[in-house]
Simulated assay, not measured.
Amino acid sequence: MEKHADRLVQLRDMTPDDLAQAHALSRKLQWPHRLDDWDFMLRAGIGLVAEEDGAVVGTILGWPYGATMATVGMVIVAEEKQGAGIGRRLMDAIMARLGDRTIVLNATAEGLPLYTRLGFTPFGEIRQHQGAAFSVPIPSLRPNERVRPLSSSDHDAIVALDRRACGMDRASLFAELRKAAHGVVLDRDSRAIGFALFRRFGRGYVIGPVVAPDVEGAKTLISHWLGSNAGMFSRVDIPGDDDLTAWLDDLGLPCVGRVTRMARGPLAPPDTDVHTFALASQALG
């Protein structure tokens, strides 16, 4: 049973001045996020902190995607303040900010009971793969396919592909990703059918989002980044896919953890022609 909520702890908007303390909280959990990663996530969304006597003892971030969808992440409560209802207060406050949007999050085992009480229901899992690939086979492209660098003129096309794949209008997120990430596009008959972004994150680099029409297209895109950055520590967060999991394991990026995908509200029906094969991050979706 939760302790009585600590009312000496106040909630307020997160500002850039809070990021050093937020980063310290995530480091205590041994999460890999750098201070720059926190800065990126706050710029892409909205945040709240729980504060007591000038010290940040809890955090939460949310990302509204269009008028109907949002994600939530970076839900942290300092160890000495856990059990006092602070996590519930942070969730209630961010949900109020996000309004009637469907909210998607990726839950650790520790967070599952709270999210279930708040009306979130499971709909899948995310597998965290990480490591260094030293030898990556060259993928076989289909006729009239090529992988090419992402250009500024591709922005609208990749936002549209992402929207079809995940059901969210994430133009605001991609505006920030353009500043932080490199990208490649999978073309077929001179038409963009997939893409993959690559950026600094945590202990090394993250590959994602990866959007493609099928798992072979996803492997082609991921292979580009692993092959051109051989030996570099990389992370890929994938929706549960046994074929992609086995392939990444064989390349030297084993699955090191799993979290539960949960949603509160209706999800958009999936597009059968294009799919998300890797996330921007577990928090961002």
Rank of each mutant, 00 (worst) to 15 (best):
G208K: 12
V215L: 15
P213Q: 12
F174G: 00
D187F: 05
R199A: 06
R178I: 01
A181V: 02
R188N: 10
G204S: 10
G208Y: 02
I193V: 15
V210Q: 04
I207Y: 02
R170K: 06
R199T: 04
F174T: 00
L186T: 02
S190H: 14
A175E: 14
A180V: 13
R200E: 13
V210P: 02
R203K: 12
V184H: 11
V185K: 05
P213C: 11
E216S: 11
S190G: 09
R178S: 11
R188P: 02
E176H: 14
D214C: 04
R170T: 01
A192C: 13
K179P: 00
G208T: 08
V206P: 00
L177D: 05
A180P: 00
V206G: 00
R203T: 01
K179F: 01
F198W: 10
L177Y: 06
A180Y: 07
G194S: 12
R191T: 13
V184Y: 08
F201K: 06
E176L: 09
V215D: 15
A196E: 03
V211K: 07
A180S: 10
R200S: 11
L186M: 09
A175Q: 13
G183E: 09
R178V: 02
I193T: 14
A196G: 09
G183A: 08
I207F: 02
D189T: 08
R191Q: 15
R199L: 11
G208L: 11
D189G: 12
G208R: 11
L173W: 05
E216N: 13
K179M: 09
F174D: 04
V211M: 07
P209N: 03
A171L: 11
V211R: 10
D214S: 02
G204P: 08
L177V: 03
R200M: 07
I193P: 07
G183H: 12
H182P: 00
D189M: 12
I193K: 14
A181I: 00
D189A: 15
E176P: 01
V215E: 15
G202Y: 04
F195M: 10
D214N: 14
R199D: 05
L177W: 03
H182R: 14
F195L: 05
D189P: 09
V184S: 04
G183L: 08
L197N: 10
V210S: 01
I193F: 13
D214R: 06
G194K: 10
L186I: 06
R170C: 02
V210K: 03
I207V: 09
A171P: 03
A171E: 14
F174I: 01
R188I: 01
V184G: 03
F201P: 01
P209Y: 12
R178K: 15
I193Q: 15
G194L: 10
